[in-house]
Write a protein that binds this DNA or RNA. Structure first.
Lengths: 148, 148
DNA sequence: GTGGGGCCTCAAGTATACTTGAGGTCAAGG
DNA sequence: CCTTGACCTCAAGTATACTTGAGGCCCCAC
């Protein structure tokens, strides 16, 4: 069956060879080895790596990606059901993020009108005194959510 | 006029004191100094820092934030017009990002249906052969855009 | 069967974004 | 005045995510 060398995986995914080796070290992929010790990947590994790239792009840390991927069977080729479960969780994370950014954008819209981030009476910044009173600042803008 | 010490700026913005000093070093804020050498901030600086926090949250690097902020007058208190110009550019970056994520999500939706990232005949992954033919992989998913 | 491109490991380096610690100064309230 | 909490600098450390380099096998097309 398809045994793909690291260089080809790199070409197919667009990742650097060094990055793929790093991902293995981080436990995101578990390629096999030839008798001579060279890594042997399979298609499922390319898919794992694709997922890694997409998740990375969304700002998910490698540690978190590993956690997500741990729901997939390590060496058995994942079934459609495995991936569907993962995709669903992923989609919901995406939704959350999009929603957060959209709210931020809408709040910013109000700002542009009022010259906000510059004027004190904006809905975002209130007066400095009010902001000081409950220990805020850009938190209004950021919706009081943690960065990730 | 309002001369705010660094600790108060930290409280109001939610930033660590050390982070604010770092931002000064990186050229994102330019506080004044007392005769004794302590930093003196003004309201405009808090707004700059708020902007920094929001931009950071969107994944903008400090170097890029500095570039953005350079359109504001360094020491003169920015006018409403200054901030409006900045906000508009910012809003458009936000739009781009939201749009990218939304497209990603929609493509993922197709995937969930077909068990993609797992099956070869998905619209995202085509067959491995086709993907190999034009040197792609997750690029379909990522819309061929650079990370930032 | 061999030449050489591809692959290997391991250590160290890079970039970003800060934090922590040591050692010392400033300034406001009592 | 004097205490003391907030502030100062500078160097070093931390975490994340990789890349680069040295030194050396692997393996397949010719």
């Amino acid at each position: 069956m398809a045994s793909i060398p690291i260089g080809e995986v790199a070409q197919r995914t667009g990742l650097a060879v060094s990055a793929i080796r790093y991902y293995e070290e981080m436990g995101l992929v578990h390629p096999g080895r030839t008798a001579g010790g060279q890594r042997v990947f399979e298609r499922a590994d390319i898919r794992r790596l694709s997922f890694v790239m997409v998740a990375q792009r969304l700002g998910v840390s490698i540690a978190d990606i590993r956690t997500e991927l741990s729901s997939l069977p390590d060496r058995r080729t994942p079934t459609k059901t495995d991936w569907t479960r993962l995709s669903r969780r992923f989609r919901s994370a995406l939704d959350t993020r999009i929603q957060g950014l959209t709210e931020l954008r809408d709040r910013l819209d109000g700002c542009i009108g009022c010259g906000c981030l510059s004027l004190d009476l904006c809905q975002l910044h209130n007066s400095d005194d009010m902001a000081a009173a409950n220990g805020t600042g850009p938190r209004y803008v950021m919706g009081d959510e943690p960065p990730n």
